[in-house]
Design a protein around this nucleic acid. Sequence first.
DNA 1: CTGCATGCTCACCCCAGGGTAACCACCCAC
DNA 2: GTGGGTGGTTACCCTGGGGTGAGCATGCAG
Lengths: 120, 120
Amino acid sequence: MTTLNRPGAPDGHACGIDTAMEVIGGKWKVLILWALHEHPYRRFGELRRLLPGVTEKVLASHLREMEADGIVHRVSYDEVPPRVEYSLTEDGKRLNDALQPLAAWGRERPTARRLAERAG
Amino acid sequence: MTTLNRPGAPDGHACGIDTAMEVIGGKWKVLILWALHEHPYRRFGELRRLLPGVTEKVLASHLREMEADGIVHRVSYDEVPPRVEYSLTEDGKRLNDALQPLAAWGRERPTARRLAERAG
DNA sequence: CTGCATGCTCACCCCAGGGTAACCACCCAC
DNA sequence: GTGGGTGGTTACCCTGGGGTGAGCATGCAG
């Protein structure tokens, strides 16, 4: 069971966060989202270069899932060499917007304790 | 490397989302956050009952990490039987607030494609 | 003495998600 | 014919996060 198995949340709330968490649950998904937000209409290789450390396999599978989730749009041009362009859908843009407060929280937070712990 | 290994994000943005994602990265953390938001000052056992499916081990370790991250506050009363109360810190409350747009996105989203796919 | 209730810890196992690397089909430049 | 660049796929391996179940310290009710 990879989903959060809650037909009704703790006390009846639909909550919705778990839905969102599933969609952005991959290791690189928020970064892909962010990259596509900053650089609309990128090709596979460009995205790969924008995300140092990601492997082709993982990038491909993440993009595929995000496409299935309707947050990225994929356009394949029938050329040689092949060209594919990825962009955010409207829903993806809204997701990105919804992530901004979280990003702000992350940036503002008062010197997280566990970061020190990890560094040490 | 469990962190997202980005001294500077894709193109120089600090981004901050990855920080937040680390903090809420556990399977049950957002639900704990939510539960503590709806029911402030809950005991371990109560929390457990609020999150059907979570095991003691995982709940304990998640609470521990969240405490280390400064988003939950733990108060242990020297009684018998032991009593421990968990609550959100100010930072935790802010995190919860920051999650609301995400929750809204999750609730509003137009019939996610992969949900159907999973059901089928 | 037994059981129950609390809030954990410990030892163990399992599997999915992610990493590694090779390969494919296509065409062009050399 | 060899190499490069495109956007992938396939096979395999490996780690760690989470699940399972037991145990522990304590005191009270029965």
